[in-house]
Computed example of a mutant assay.
Amino acid sequence: MSTRGADFLHKWISEHMPEGPIDDPGRFVTDLADRAMRAANAEGISIQEIDEEIGSVYEAIIHAVEHREGGLAD
């Protein structure tokens, strides 16, 4: 199994994660996941390929949000 999907998603998330606080994490995760899946598709990477390598795109983004600097808005 290749890591193409996982590599793409990790790089894409790191390039699109904001530095400041996130006011509405639920909406942010949904919007970012939708944008990531469209970007992957445009690169010829199917969501199934990503899912097979890392699991849910949503869960990967939630994990990234929880472990980034800047935190969530109070």
Rank of each mutant, 00 (worst) to 15 (best):
V65Y: 05
H63V: 07
A60H: 04
M17T: 06
M37E: 15
R68M: 09
D7S: 08
I62S: 00
A64H: 00
Q48I: 10
G5I: 10
G70R: 07
F28W: 10
A6E: 04
E15K: 06
E52G: 13
I22T: 12
D24I: 14
D24S: 12
D24V: 07
D24G: 06
M1R: 07
G44S: 02
L32I: 05
I61N: 01
R68L: 05
Q48V: 13
I62H: 05
E19W: 10
G5D: 02
Q48M: 14
V29G: 03
D51E: 09
P21I: 03
G44P: 00
T3R: 15
T30P: 05
D31Y: 06
P18T: 13
D74G: 05
E43T: 08
L72Y: 09
D34L: 14
R68I: 07
I45M: 04
E52R: 14
M37H: 08
G5R: 01
G44V: 02
G44F: 05
F8W: 03
H10N: 03
G71H: 05
G71M: 09
D23P: 03
E43Y: 11
G55N: 11
A39V: 08
A73Y: 14
P21M: 07
S2A: 15
M37R: 12
M1Y: 09
L9D: 02
I45W: 00
I50L: 05
A40E: 01
F28V: 10
K11Y: 09
G44D: 01
E43S: 09
R4L: 14
A39K: 03
E49Q: 14
A73R: 09
L9K: 02
I50K: 01
A60S: 09
V29A: 04
V57P: 10
S56K: 06
Q48F: 14
I22A: 06
E53F: 13
P21V: 12
V65D: 01
E43C: 04
A42K: 15
H10C: 01
I22Q: 11
R35K: 15
E52M: 13
R27D: 10
I61R: 01
R4T: 12
E15A: 06
W12P: 00
